[in-house]
Structures are given as structure tokens and as C-alpha cells.
Design a protein around this nucleic acid. Structure first.
Lengths: 101, 101
DNA sequence: ACTTTATTTAGATAATTGGCTAATTATCTA
DNA sequence: TAGATAATTAGCCAATTATCTAAATAAAGT
């Protein structure tokens, strides 16, 4: 769980996840979206992989990364449940009807 | 947003938030729940405050910390929306359970 | 076998983090 | 005002992180 949040605590890594949400991509193609070197990107991929948020699929000489969406969902869900958070995507729920204190 | 995730990336800080979810508490009372020194706890509070997740209310010589729940909710919501995540609290359409590797 | 391409690993450095003890600030009470 | 209490700030250290350049590995293509 800590690993997931640590992975999310960096804008580059969040952006990588967003890109992978659309479709799996190679390390090189991902790297082109950012202004850092490839070794740096490789390190970011390693952090994401350590959090189990992405998986690698080697095809020939390129490596295709794929988002493990369910892992991300599970981590967030587990956390929000521990807090009794609702996270309704609607207007902004005033934490249910009456007990608001 | 990065600050929020960074704050959440530490078990001690997540526990602090859980405690504050129940009710506001003083720095000292919070510190008693953990096996680190008070200065260390103070540093954790500073991280949480930097993420705007808690607010301090000084009463005499004690400081009462309070969870800013809506900030937490908004950050999570903003993130989940950027991913089109649903975070259904329901059953969970087993997208895995076997790919454990 | 050599060359090119894709990506990671190695090694260096600077910045950040998490922890400690000691010192300081602020407040209360006798 | 002196002493006690609550919490932070200051200063230090070890471990981790983020970044770079340069080198190594792996897979194709020639």
C-alpha cells in the first residue's frame, strides 16, 4: 500500500499511468513524452513495477508496459474503505443525510 | 496532489489520519499511539499539514489537530476522475485472483 | 560476425526523508 | 518569577531518491 502511494507521489509516474491507461506502450514511446533521460524513465518504471502497478511484456527488443488497473483500484479502494470514504463521482456528497454534526 | 500522495505513502501518517478521522486530537495524544519520539511525530504532522490534510488549532499549550476530510476526498476524487476509475465499493468483478505470478 | 536499436545496469552526486537528542518557545500554575 | 508541561525547531546522521553520463545487455538486421 505504501508502495502504491509512493509511486503515485510523482507527477511523471502519474502521467505514465495515465498514458498506459489508454493503451500499453513501449518504454521508449513512454519516454518520449517526458523531458528526462531514458535511464531516469527506467527508474520510474521500476518504482511503478515495485508497486505492482505495471507489468512488462518483452517483445523482441522492445518492452511493452501495461497498466495493472485492478491493482490500482484495489489499493485505492482498500484505503478509502479504511476511511469510510465514499468517493462518489457525482456532485459532492455531503457525507450522507443527517449525522453531519 | 503529489503532496497528498507523499503524505499517504507512510504508514504512521496514514494511521494519524485514521485516528483524526474519529475525532480531533492533540499532538501528544496522537504521539502516544506510536513508538517514535515526539519531534519525529511533529515532523510527520508537518508533512500532513503541507499536504493540507490536517489543520492545527492551538488551545492553550496544547495543539489540537483536525483532519481536513474534504481535502483528502477531493484529491482522491480528482485522481480517480483523471483515470476514469469507478471505485465501486461493491463486489469486485474479479479482474484477476490468478495472475498472482 | 558486426552494427544498430531498445532498454537497463552501474556509478556518481545532490537532494530528501525519517529518525534521534538537545535546545527553544509558549503557556499555565504555584 | 520560577517551574513544569506541550510542542516545535535546530542540528545531526544514515538511508533513500532522483537525476545524470557512460557502459552493458539483448535482439535484430545486414
Amino acid at each position: 500500500m505504501s508502495n502504491v502511494f509512493k509511486a503515485l507521489a510523482d507527477p511523471t509516474r502519474r502521467k505514465v499511468l495515465e498514458l498506459l491507461k489508454k493503451k500499453p506502450m513501449s518504454a521508449g514511446d513512454l519516454a518520449e513524452h517526458f523531458a528526462v533521460t531514458k535511464p531516469t524513465m527506467s527508474a520510474h518504471f521500476a518504482v511503478l513495477a515495485a508497486a505492482d502497478l505495471i507489468e512488462a511484456d518483452k517483445q523482441g527488443r522492445t518492452i511493452i508496459y501495461r497498466l495493472k488497473l485492478s491493482v490500482l483500484e484495489d489499493a485505492l479502494l482498500q484505503f478509502t474503505r479504511a476511511f469510510g470514504l465514499q468517493l462518489t463521482n457525482g456532485k459532492h456528497t455531503t457525507t450522507s443525510t443527517k449525522g453531519k454534526k
